[in-house]
C-alpha cells in the first residue's frame, strides 16, 4: 500500500483506524457493514487525493469530518434510490428487517444497551456525545466535526447527556 496524496499516509490512517471505525459505526447506527463501506469510501478519497488534508485542524478531527461527509452523501443517494423505487416500482425491500439471533444475543450486553439508548437521541446529540465521550474530543472540536458552533455543540451536549442518562436509568444500566 503506497503513501497517500496530500501528506496523509496509509500508516497515519491505520493508526487512526480503530477510532475512525468507532465513529463510522456510530454514524451507521451500529450497522457494521455500513460502517465498513463508509470507511472504505472515506479512505479511498483520502488515499487517491480526492479529499485533501490542509492542516487547518488535527488530522483526527479532519478524518472524522471526511467520514461524516461520506455518510451524508450515501444517505442522500439512498434516499433518492428509495424515492425512485417508490415512484416506479412495487414496494421495495423492508427498511428495517427483523434482527437475527446473533444480533439479538449481541444486543443483550451493556454496550449494546448504550448503543440502543444513543439511537433514541437526535442525530446531533448522538454525534456530539460520541465525539466527546467516545473519541475524547473537546466540545469545540466536536462542533467543528459536525459543522456547528461551539455554543450550539454545548447545547446539544448538555441536552443529549441528560436524555441519555435518563434512558440508561430507565433500562437499568
Amino acid at each position: 500500500m503506497g503513501s497517500a496524496a496530500a501528506g496523509v499516509s496509509a500508516e497515519e490512517l491505520e493508526r487512526l483506524h480503530p477510532d475512525a471505525f468507532g465513529w463510522a459505526l456510530s454514524l451507521a447506527g451500529g450497522d457494521r457493514s455500513e460502517a465498513e463501506e463508509l470507511l472504505q469510501s472515506a479512505y479511498l478519497r483520502i488515499l487517491t487525493g480526492t479529499a485533501r488534508f490542509e492542516g487547518r485542524s488535527r488530522l483526527r478531527t479532519w478524518l472524522f469530518g471526511v467520514v461524516r461527509t461520506v455518510c451524508r452523501e450515501r444517505r442522500r443517494q439512498a434516499a433518492v434510490r428509495r424515492l425512485a423505487r417508490l415512484r416506479w416500482l412495487a414496494p421495495g425491500e423492508p427498511v428495517d428487517p427483523a434482527p437475527g439471533p446473533a444480533e439479538l444475543a449481541e444486543r443483550s450486553g451493556r454496550a449494546a444497551r448504550t448503543r440502543e439508548a444513543l439511537a433514541r437521541l437526535s442525530a446531533r446529540q448522538r454525534e456530539v456525545l460520541h465525539l466527546v465521550f467516545y473519541q475524547e474530543l473537546t466540545i469545540e472540536e466536536a462542533g467543528a466535526v459536525v459543522g456547528i458552533s461551539a455554543g450550539s455543540a454545548r447545547t446539544h451536549y448538555e441536552r443529549g447527556k441528560q436524555r441519555l442518562r435518563r434512558l440508561l436509568a430507565e433500562e437499568g444500566t
Binding site: 500500500m1 471505525f21 465498513e36 479511498l44 454496550a111 448504550t114 467516545y134 442518562r165
Partner: peptide, 26 residues
C-alpha cells in the same frame, strides 16, 4: 456516561476490521 462509552469503545475495537483488508476491498 464515560464508563458506558468506554465499554462501547472496547467492544468496537475488538470488532474492528483490519485496515489493510478494508482498503483492499474498497
Amino acid at each position: 456516561l464515560a464508563q458506558a462509552f468506554a465499554q462501547l469503545r472496547a467492544e468496537d475495537r475488538r470488532a474492528a476490521p483490519s485496515f489493510r483488508d478494508l482498503v483492499e476491498r474498497g
